[in-house]
């Protein structure tokens, strides 16, 4: 009886372990994403930039590649990215993982530029001597043909984004592309609504919130990001006067205890007063000593 129970428990533990590691490894990367390649060529320069981006964004969990010092207390444990298991993945898979994230790994799609993301992969690949890069065959200059229009409708409070490409053969609407809209904030970008797919006319419509603070004139910096398989990743910035005018004085405008530019008057007065009193006493003492010296002449 006891042995049987033990067997069941052992089986349960072992199968849980396998399920767990299965979940860990299975990223379900779609085939087209898996085959994707970088548009930039990996070399020592890109790897160096990648290293600095890696240090800011990845090292806290994954540790230094080859050192095996990733954060072991996390579940699943973030792998050492120089490990064979990671290096077996294609560039497209790494890029996908970096873009989407999962469980405790955040998505870097909207945090880092496409270029920076590829450079991180360039850095990771620099630990693999057998790695041979396959460059993307798509033309990087094609993205410059794309024209993105943004229009705001006050009545409906909506932003209409139109994406078109000026090909030699004429204007082509980019249809069924993923469009993401952001507003620039103090720290990072705020996504507006959910991402949309363009219609056959290359149009996507976003509901714009009525209470988004702008600068003191109401200006909001908007960023549109288009992901197109032919034209690549396109990002356009436009400032529109559609936010709520907000005038927050800067942290260093008032005389406050934390302000390094303008200090509170009471502190200046007290400190200066203290130092001056000391100065006066010191002068008096020196004067007295001088008097003492003179008084010695008989």
């Amino acid at each position: 009886m006891y042995t049987r129970n033990l067997r069941i428990v052992t089986f349960a533990i072992v199968s849980m372990f396998f399920l767990h590691s299965f979940a860990e490894n299975n990223w379900n990367v779609p085939a087209d994403k898996k085959a994707r390649n970088s548009t930039i060529k990996f070399d020592a320069t890109t790897s160096k930039v990648g290293e600095s981006v890696y240090t800011k964004n990845c090292v806290s969990c994954h540790g230094d590649p080859t050192k095996g010092n990733s954060l072991k207390s996390l579940s699943p444990v973030p792998p050492d990215l120089a490990s064979a298991k990671t290096q077996e993945l294609t560039d497209g898979e790494l890029f996908y993982i970096l873009n989407t994230g999962r469980v405790i790994m955040p998505s870097f799609n909207n945090v880092l530029s496409e270029e920076d993301r590829w450079k991180i992969i360039s850095y990771i690949r620099s630990f693999n001597k057998d790695y041979v890069q396959q460059l993307s065959i798509s033309d990087t200059n094609k993205s410059q043909l794309v024209k993105v229009d943004m229009a705001f409708d006050k009545k409906s409070n909506q932003i209409t984004v139109t994406v078109k490409a000026n090909e030699k053969t004429g204007v082509v609407s980019l249809k069924d592309d993923e469009i993401v809209l952001f507003a620039n904030r103090y720290f990072g970008r705020l996504q507006i609504g959910e991402s949309q797919r363009t219609t056959a006319d290359g149009v996507a419509v976003f509901d714009f919130p009525k209470d988004l603070p702008g600068d003191k004139d109401g200006n909001v910096k908007l960023v549109v990001k288009v992901n197109d398989d032919t034209y690549g990743e396109i990002s356009r910035l436009k400032t529109m006067k559609i936010g709520v005018p907000t005038d927050i004085p800067s942290m260093t405008a008032d005389r406050t205890i934390w302000n390094v530019l303008f200090k509170p008057i009471w502190i200046i007065v007290l400190y200066t007063f203290g130092v001056m009193v000391f100065g006066c006493v010191l002068l008096y003492l020196l004067y007295s000593l001088n008097r003492l010296r003179k008084a010695g002449n008989i």
Binding site: L289, L292, R293, K294, A295, G296, N297, I298
Partner: peptide
């Protein structure tokens, strides 16, 4: 300092 033990 020229001390001469004078009253002053």
């Amino acid at each position: 300092l020229n001390w001469n033990n004078t009253p002053e």
